[in-house]
């Protein structure tokens, strides 16, 4: 029972940086742009977010600057793919390397320092409910904001005019152009939004989830975020479910180890990844649904004047 409560309580926070970055990437991909620099953006914002909280104590300032820096990197990426018509995959990786390098360089003076973790938000009354209270109503504020952002995004993409434009641009930029939409502008904003979310994700990872900065601490989580978008077949709700599922599996490895079932730990550590593959295989059989949601122009640059 302790084990299950531990997993469920921790899942939301563990999944939050993955989900934040994945939601940002989802919007970029919906507009037809694949940005592989998430890892680098998260790292840079984690380093600077940490540095700012460490020196000023202000989380708000840290999140703002972190998001700003990640947006700056995503603007570099946007310039490469939209002004210079460079390949999206290569540009994303290149900008990602710059971000990783900058994070290590700027974070040098803060290596392995820690912060006081901000206390979780305790929703009055509700958090006193046994078991469920601690799982659902004693999380930090970013967890709740992320869930809200997820549902908000779901509505925007499905039901709002902005969402419609975004989808049309991602489906077929030429048609979007002919309909009078500014394709490059839409894509630029979508990329910036991706940067913003990756920035928040990075700052969350280093100042709230694990209040520590250490070079390389993002450790492939940007890639996981990318995988979550595909896993969720470009649908917000599925991305959210995928993120929380993966977060739970990551914690299950550690929790089950404490029980010592006689299984070598390496097998336990492999489980989240193996389970993800199995779940993916089960849910992917409905090809039509995937095709309906995948942005057709993903990865292809658009040039308005030809």
């Amino acid at each position: 029972m302790d084990t299950i409560i531990f997993i469920l309580t921790g899942t939301f926070a563990t999944a939050t940086p993955l989900l934040l970055a994945a939601l940002g990437e989802l919007v970029a991909e919906k507009s037809g742009i694949i940005n592989l620099s998430i890892e680098g953006m998260m790292a840079l914002s984690a380093a600077m977010g940490f540095a700012i909280v460490y020196t000023t104590g202000s989380h708000l300032l840290a999140f703002a600057v972190a998001a700003g820096l990640a947006m700056l990197l995503s603007a570099v990426f946007a310039t490469l793919v939209m002004f210079f018509s460079a390949n999206q995959v290569a540009s994303g990786l290149a900008v990602g390397i710059l971000g990783l390098g900058l994070s290590a360089l700027l974070g040098r003076d803060y290596e392995s320092l820690t912060l006081q973790a901000p206390s979780a938000l305790s929703v009055p009354i509700l958090s006193d409910i046994p078991i469920l209270g601690s799982i659902l109503f004693q999380q930090d504020i970013v967890v709740y904001m992320t869930i809200t952002a997820g549902f908000g995004l779901m509505w925007i993409i499905q039901h709002s005019r902005v969402g419609l434009i975004l989808r049309i641009v991602g489906e077929n930029p030429h048609i979007a152009h002919n309909l009078g939409f500014n394709v490059l502008q839409v894509r630029f904003l979508a990329i910036l939004f991706g940067g913003f979310m990756a920035g928040i994700a990075g700052a969350y990872a280093s100042t709230i989830l694990t209040p520590i900065w250490s070079q390389g601490m993002i450790l492939g989580r940007g890639w996981i975020a990318l995988a979550l978008v595909v896993f969720g077949t470009w649908r917000v709700l599925r991305v959210m479910i995928g993120a929380y599922l993966f977060g739970a599996l990551l914690l299950a490895d550690l929790a089950v180890q404490t029980l010592n079932l006689g299984i070598p730990s390496q097998i336990m550590t492999s489980m989240p990844y193996a389970m993800t593959i199995v779940v993916l295989a089960i849910i992917s059989r409905d090809t039509l649904r995937i095709r309906l949601n995948a942005p057709v122009s993903l990865g292809q640059n658009y040039r308005p004047n030809h």
């Binding site: 084990t3 531990f6 921790g10 563990t14 990872a205 989830l209 694990t210 520590i212 250490s214 601490m217 450790l219 989580r221 990551l250 914690l251 550690l254 929790a255 180890q257 404490t258």
Partner: peptide
């Protein structure tokens, strides 16, 4: 892996 380290401690 600091995040994993923290989760392990919490577990």
């Amino acid at each position: 892996d600091p995040a994993r380290n923290r989760s392990a401690a919490e577990a």
